[in-house]
């Protein structure tokens, strides 16, 4: 048996690593990759908690609550797929218009000095 704390510690480390990437990276692609890392951290936490809470008669009988964590992971994977597709499209569009996707150099929303 693996203690649930190990899973959660790993999850926190992964989450913080992803967070660090989001904060420091300048390339939008890399920020997306960091976000994927954070999503995976969340997935791992969901799986860990799902593996801890289950009924006494496991695995001979199941109820809906025994798979809640799995279902959330399923949803997150689906959402991540949608997010990656949209991200690719947006980055291509941005790249087409600005010639780069370094987010530090893209600030047309900022008010220009008059």
């Amino acid at each position: 048996m693996i203690p649930v704390e190990w899973f959660l510690t790993l999850s926190v480390v992964m989450f913080v690593g992803g967070l660090f990437g989001v904060l420091t990276q300048k390339n939008a692609m890399r920020i997306l990759i960091s976000v994927e890392i954070m999503l995976n951290a969340a997935n791992l936490a969901f799986m860990a908690f799902n593996g801890v809470f289950y009924n006494a008669d496991f695995p001979n009988s199941f109820s809906a609550s025994d798979f809640e964590g799995w279902v959330f992971v399923f949803i997150i994977i689906g959402v991540a797929a949608a997010e990656a597709a949209i991200g690719l499209a947006i980055f291509l569009s941005v790249y087409r218009n600005f010639g780069e996707i370094q987010i530090t150099n893209i600030f047309t929303l900022k008010e220009q000095e008059v």
């Binding site: 300048k26 995976n40 994977i77 690719l88 790249y95």
Partner: peptide, 21 residues
């Protein structure tokens, strides 16, 4: 994830490769 999304990421990385940080 490993099969589908990563292909998208690789494509995006290849198509937008310009100046590396």
């Amino acid at each position: 994830y490993a099969g589908g999304i990563s292909v998208l990421l690789l494509f995006a990385a290849l198509l937008t490769q310009h100046e590396e940080y």
